[in-house]
Design a protein around this nucleic acid. Structure first.
Lengths: 220, 220
DNA sequence: GGGTCGCATCAAGGCATCGTCAGGAAGTTC
DNA sequence: GAACTTCCTGACGATGCCTTGATGCGACCC
């Protein structure tokens, strides 16, 4: 959050913090570039009327090394300014005075967009095997293990809830559908298959643990 | 370009065409969704006040299968409308009347952003063939292999998601359109053609791998 | 000790999905 | 208008997955 007007910085900080964002602030362009390099923000809100350097130079300075979303704030409604800032690499341009709702919505849109880009591969590791949730791959001792759709469906839910107990009913409903909530036999068959494929000692599972009477737990 | 006011459509078409854009137009939401599915635009400019369906529904309809940038045009300045449209998945929101300069700058910004996403390694190599995503060309043993548009569409998605499993539904929706999500037979036919053209042993594919019941995977 | 309940394991049949081939419709090019 | 390309569709056999039943084991209650 880059602005030289303390009251705006303050208002934004309060609003953003209340919504769970963590906020870094800077009051001029030089400090902004430094803070961005150190803090690696997920999105930048940049006021154009800074005391030291021109706003477009800050944009250019950021764009030199990062594609972080930049939302420009400005009191200037002249379209030439907007064009200049956007063409310099800004992602959005909001004129002051602005509605907090709108700024937050534009912020969400910017973050959402860049989240898609990152598409990080969430990988869950255990002592004996590795689950790549994005690629839908499982490796054991480096070699890839083939899973059937049902096996993968089960493992995926357990891995996404790793460390937590997942109820039998939930597993059945999410993998087989709402009508199968009581077919607990399916779980036994497929958990046995998963253990045979993944556990070092299938009969003494260490990662795919049964919680008798309740459900199953993935222990990383 | 989706708007029910002919004069706006006309003004935009002239301006955009003069700058080298090719423009598809639609005058209501239904036609817009159809045109987008067929024409695969690089960016969508969408007026919210359409005669048939609500604008946010058009946004939702697009977001169901594509992440194409959507710039919303609207006469409504109320911030609640902006928030609704942006949260529905729009990338930008411009209020009428708008400056053509500004709209064009926002358009450039939107296209630039999505270009960055695409700018991953443009060349994907395997042991037996090479895919050049930027040039849309495939070479095998140095010689160029001709692919039909559909074959290329499939290979492109798989190559961009190399290493990752791509669901059948996603392939069908992105290549054939949202209405074809269940025509899995198409995939079998075209994967067979791609394998025949690219794999050393088409009946034992090593790079275009089937994951039964789930989808397909490109292994570099 | 007998009975019940929940869990693990194994095996086998039915059936959904996959790969393949081929023919015809629609559109393009010359 | 003929030759060609591309796409869609149907038929067929084969693979492998899901389901289901049978059996054994341990924990717990009576």
């Amino acid at each position: 959050m880059v602005d030289d007007e303390p009251q705006i910085v303050r208002a934004l900080r309060i609003n953003l913090s209340a919504r769970g964002y963590s906020v870094l602030t800077a009051h001029d362009g030089t400090a902004a570039l430094k803070a961005a390099a150190e803090g690696r923000p997920d999105v930048v809100v940049l006021d154009l009327g800074l005391p030291d350097v021109d706003g477009t130079e800050v944009i250019a300075g950021l764009r030199g090394w990062t594609s972080v979303p930049i939302i420009v704030l400005s009191a200037r409604v002249d379209s030439a300014d907007k064009v200049e800032a956007l063409d310099a690499g800004a992602d959005d341009y909001v004129t002051k005075p602005f509605g907090m709702d709108e700024l937050l919505a534009r912020l969400r849109a910017a973050v959402r967009r860049s989240a898609v880009v990152e598409g990080e591969d969430a990988v869950v590791e255990t002592a004996s095997f590795t689950v790549d949730l994005a690629a839908k791959k499982v490796r054991r001792d480096g070699v890839e293990v083939h899973l059937t759709p049902t096996e993968w469906g089960l493992l995926e839910i357990l891995a996404r809830n790793r460390g937590r107990l997942v109820a039998q009913k939930q597993l059945l409903q999410e993998v087989w559908g709402p009508a199968y909530a009581k077919e607990t036999h399916y779980l036994r068959v497929y958990l046995a298959q998963l253990r045979r494929k993944l556990e070092p000692e299938p009969s003494h599972p260490r990662h795919l643990v049964t919680e008798p009477g309740m459900g199953y737990r993935f222990e990383p």
